[in-house]
């Protein structure tokens, strides 16, 4: 149990292109594009934090694009997905509007939370995104409740709870695992284990570095996967979603990944005031986008040229969305008190 992650914690491993045989190339291409969109969106947000245009705290998901993109492929808009402080990827994985995310980070009325939440409080029920909140672990019981509602509805909808490795240190999260298990609730707990809680490595916080041991303890079936490998994520997600839709109970995925930027904000060199170890460049070789792209090129599905054309188009579009968000209005002052109660 202590060693569930194995080589996944060794940044020198898992750098190769991934195995894409047997997977739908349209899906792969589509998700490659979406991962690229997420990366560029996060980079644009990062750049605009540096210049002071974005002021709200932003926890960027650069390097962690694959998990949400892979899982979202098997979700539907009546499912209920919840996240935490680092949830741009979860929202965009479900194809949430880039414009609304940009506007939200700027506190604009067109934002997905009407400019009232900022980066840390995203919401869009039209894509099945039930909300992300920055109190660590807080959305896990709520997602569990969304699964309870889905179970009562009995139409096969499921809940997804994205959490970080540190959330497993909170009592409410452990209670939720137990509750979901004993009540057989259709929820996928997805731990994106990036080894860190702000400045603290998991080895300083937990006796074992794999959080899947909590699934085992609570009798929840689980998979530990390379969270930077899109097709591994597909396989685990497909199984988890099927299990939950068939009303068999909760499922647990631990996706090993790594964040490239600091805990909050755009910096790569320091993390909440502490200088980072210099192994980031090694971890970057596990880039989920590059590994998928190389696999597609190796199989002649894609050429370097195609990729450049695709990314050029995306870049152009993102610049337009960003400009539109800059031009959007702020919420009226009256909104402050009008929406406190329904």
């Amino acid at each position: 149990m202590a060693n569930l992650l194995g080589d996944l914690v060794n940044p020198d491993k898992y750098q190769e292109p991934i195995n894409i045989s047997g997977f739908d190339t349209n899906h792969l291409m589509d998700d490659l594009k979406q991962m690229y969109v997420i990366r560029r969106v996060e980079e644009i947000i990062g750049d605009n934090i540096v210049t002071g245009v974005i002021k709200c705290p932003c926890h960027l998901g650069i390097g962690q694009e694959a998990t949400a993109v892979g899982l979202s492929r098997y979700l539907r808009s009546s499912d209920r997905v919840f996240g935490g402080h680092r949830s741009h990827t979860h929202y965009l994985g479900l194809r949430g509007s880039v414009y609304k995310l940009f506007a939200e980070t700027l506190g604009k009325l067109d934002g997905c939370s009407k400019g009232m939440g900022g980066s840390m409080h995203l919401y869009d029920p039209s894509i099945g995104f039930g909300g992300s909140v920055p109190i660590v672990g807080a959305s896990v019981p709520i997602a569990t409740g969304a699964a309870l509602a889905a179970k009562k509805d009995n139409v096969g909808d499921i809940a997804v709870s994205y959490l970080g490795d540190s959330a497993c240190e909170e009592g409410a999260v452990q209670e939720s695992f137990n509750l979901a298990s004993i009540m057989k609730l259709p929820i996928i707990f997805v731990v994106e284990n990036n080894l860190f809680a702000s400045h603290m490595h998991i080895d300083l916080r937990q006796p074992h570095n794999s959080t899947a041991r909590f699934a085992e303890a609570h009798g929840i079936p689980f998979k530990v996967i390379d969270g930077n490998n899109l097709t591994d994520i597909y396989e685990a997600s497909q199984e988890a979603v099927k299990y939950c839709r068939e009303n068999k109970g909760p499922y647990f995925i631990e996706a090993m990944t790594y964040r490239w930027r600091g805990h909050v904000g755009p910096r790569e060199d320091t993390d909440v005031g502490v200088k980072r170890k210099d192994d980031l460049n090694t971890w970057k070789k596990r880039d989920p986008i590059r590994r998928l792209k190389d696999s597609l090129i190796n199989k002649n599905v894609l050429s370097e040229n195609d990729f450049n054309e695709i990314t050029k188009l995306i870049d152009k579009n993102l610049v337009e969305q960003w400009q539109k968000a800059l031009d959007a209005p702020y919420p009226p002052k009256s909104l402050l008190t009008e929406i406190v109660y329904k």
């Binding site: 506190g107 009232m116 900022g118 702020y330 919420p331 002052k333 909104l335 008190t337 406190v340």
Partner: peptide
Amino acid sequence: DAPAPTSKPL
């Protein structure tokens, strides 16, 4: 008497 908003004007 409201939760804290995010955007600057609010």
